[in-house]
Amino acid sequence: MKASVSTDARRAAARQSQKEATRQKVLAAARELFDTHGYQGATVRDIARHAGVAVGSVFTTFASKGEILSEVMQSRLDGLYGELDRVMPHLRGSTADRLRTMFAIHFNFEAQHVRLFLSHIAAAYDWTLPPAARPYGRTPRLQEIIHECLHKGVEEGDVCREANLQEIVDLLMAAYAWTYRLVVTRSYDTNALTEVMDRQIGLIAEGFRPR
C-alpha cells in the first residue's frame, strides 16, 4: 500500500511539473504573440500552436485568453516594480518631480512593448476576463506606488492634507493611459511621451498643492 501511495504521489508530482511546464510555454508564446499581433489579433489556437501544446491543454491551465494576458502582464510588471522599489526611496525633489521620474521609468520600460501594453488596457473591457484578474486601471501595485509618493508629499508639505489621494491617483492613471494613445495616433517616442506626461503631472500638481 505504501508503495502505491508514493507512486501516486510521484505521478501527481510529475503531472504537476508537466502542468507547470505547459504553463510556462503558453505564457512565453502568448507574450510574443500579443506583442507582435496585439491581444485581439492572437487567438488561443495561435498561442497553443506557437507554444507547441494542444489547445485543450491551454484551457486546462487557463480559464481564458484574458487570464493568459493578465498573467503575462503580471510577470513582466514584477520586474518593473522591483526596479521602482529600489529607486523610489532614494528620489529627491518635489512630489511632482518624483512622480515624473516614476512615470518616466514606466515609459522606458514599456517602450519596446507598447502593443502589449495597449492590449492590456483593451482587455480590461474583455468579456472573458475573470473577475479576479486585475486589468490596467486596477493594478494595485502601481496605485500603491503613487499613493506612497503622495503620502510622502503630504508629510513633506507639498501635497494638500485635505486632498483625496485616491482621486489624484486616478487622475494620474487616466493621464498616463491617455499618453499611450499618442503612440498609436501620433507615433510618439519615449521622450515625447515623457514630456507630455511631465506637463500633465505639473497641471495635476497645481491642483493638489496646499493652499
Binding site: 496585439g38 495597449l118 483593451a122 482587455a123 480590461a124 473591457y125 494613445r181 498609436v184 495616433t185
Partner: peptide, 18 residues
Amino acid sequence: ARAAFGVSWTPDGGPVLR
C-alpha cells in the same frame, strides 16, 4: 459603453471611434 471602451483601445477600432 464597456464594449465601446474595449474597441477604443484596439489598434484598428480606437482611431475610428475617436
